[in-house]
Amino acid sequence: MNENDPQISQDITNLITVGNAFSEHAKMSMRNVNVFYADKQAIHDVSLDIGKNEVVAMIGPSGCGKSTFLRCMNRMNDTIDSCRIEGDFRLEEDDIYHPNQDVVALRARVGIVFQKPNPFPKSIYDNVAYGPKVHGLASSKTDLDEIVETSLVRAGLWNEVKDRLTAAGTGLSGGQQQRLCIARTIAVGPEVILMDEPCSALDPIATAKIEELIAELSQNFTIAIVTHSMQQAARVSQRTAYFHMGKLIEVNDTKKVFTNPEHELTEAYITGRFG
């Protein structure tokens, strides 16, 4: 942020979230979340609901903690030794961080798509079939074929790859790879899909395709998406959460955030004064 700007160089320690962070039909609800990397606090007391079949966009300047928060929602940060998480994460009624909560089962319900397309170095078919195989979702080869086809159709990739399912997934173009990753995620049949800047490595045409896909997927899935592009947030999401230095500053309907933000930090960010 720009320290010389008197309007926004203010103390953020006492900031509270403005707008409407909660939802009546919450699919996931996070309360009073604090995340630390070793001694450094990355998330300060964030509470947020993701409503059922809703697309929530998380925006904010680099290093504001939005990706960290997203990764905590299906415990991907468990793999980082120095990461310590406090607060309450719930998927419907289930406590995500309960000691008895099985991470494997959780990730079957909360899938994730990463920033960089990361297909396995296997065939397209095997990429999509991997999740169902691991979870034992298909009882026969025909079953598995069907899951693979449905997932690829829903990810809008079927027509492009149906003739070369045995070709390498890594041989596809960047946008196709990312849609393959989405197909791979929905093949497991999750309830929530987390997307961590899914279009930041893609060209505008591929981005447009993914955005269309997100709109379609929101009919069946609950989606939380981290994005650097405010236009993208405006296009795909119903609600937008603005993060700033580890704090959740404002959550509101996307239209309101981009036309009439309540908080001056949000306004400063969306008008491009920093970020």
Partner: peptide, 23 residues
């Protein structure tokens, strides 16, 4: 082995052993 491959498998719900054996 790129960490992104591990992340991808973990994100799909593979256990640690499956990540190691499969990828």
């Amino acid at each position: 082995v790129p960490p992104s491959i591990r992340d991808a498998a973990l994100g799909l719900g593979a256990s640690k052993m499956q990540v190691i054996l499969h990828h």
